[in-house]
C-alpha cells in the first residue's frame, strides 16, 4: 500500500487509517482480562465481607447492610485516591476497580481534587461530577423511562 501526493484526501485518509489500525499495538488483552476478573472479583468479595461485618455490628439484615457497605467502599476508594494510590492500582486492575462503585468514587474524588485550585465553588463544587455525572444522568434517564413504561403497562392491563 502506498500513500502519495495527488491521492484524493479521503482515499488518503482511509488508507492511512487502515494502516494505523493494522499496526496499532493492542493492549495485553489476556493479562488485562485476568486482572480485571480477579481484582473485580476481590473487590466484590471484600464487599461481601464488609456486608457481613455491618450486619453483625449494626444488627441489621444482610440486605440492609448493603447501604453501609457501598458507603464503606466509597470511603476506601476516596481515601486511596486522595493518597495517590488508586490510579496506580487501576493501571493494573483496569475495569476491576473502575466497574465496582470504587470507580465511581474515584472519578468524583479525582475530579474534585484536581479542580480544587479553581476554588470551592467553581472547582470542587462545579467539577466534581465532570466524569461521574454521565453515570448518574443515564441511570436516572433509564429509571425514568423504565418507570413510565412500567406504569403505562400496568394501566393498560
Amino acid at each position: 500500500m502506498t500513500i502519495r501526493e495527488g491521492t484524493s484526501q479521503t482515499t488518503q485518509q482511509s488508507l492511512y487509517r487502515r494502516m494505523v489500525l493494522k499496526a496499532e499495538p493492542g493492549p495485553p488483552r489476556l493479562r488485562n482480562a485476568v486482572m480485571a476478573f480477579v481484582s473485580g472479583g476481590l473487590v466484590c468479595m471484600v464487599g461481601e465481607g464488609i456486608t457481613d461485618f455491618w450486619e453483625r455490628v449494626l444488627r441489621i439484615s444482610h440486605k440492609q447492610a448493603a447501604d453501609p457497605t457501598v458507603a464503606t467502599l466509597i470511603f476506601l476508594a476516596s481515601l486511596l485516591t486522595g493518597l495517590g494510590y488508586f490510579d496506580k492500582l487501576a493501571r493494573y486492575a483496569g475495569a476491576g476497580l473502575a466497574v465496582p462503585v470504587t470507580g465511581f468514587a474515584n472519578a468524583m474524588t479525582a475530579s474534585a481534587m484536581e479542580f480544587k485550585r479553581e476554588g470551592l465553588i467553581f472547582g470542587i463544587g462545579g467539577r466534581m461530577f465532570q466524569l461521574a455525572g454521565a453515570v448518574i444522568v443515564y441511570g436516572v434517564v433509564t429509571a425514568f423511562l423504565v418507570g413510565i413504561i412500567t406504569g403505562i403497562v400496568r394501566l393498560v392491563r
Binding site: P27, G82, D87, A110, E114
Partner: peptide, 17 residues
Amino acid sequence: ERQYRYPTEYGSQKKPY
C-alpha cells in the same frame, strides 16, 4: 493531562500507543 484528558488521580488504563 487535566486539560486534554483526565484528572491526574483518575484511574484509567492507557493503550500501549
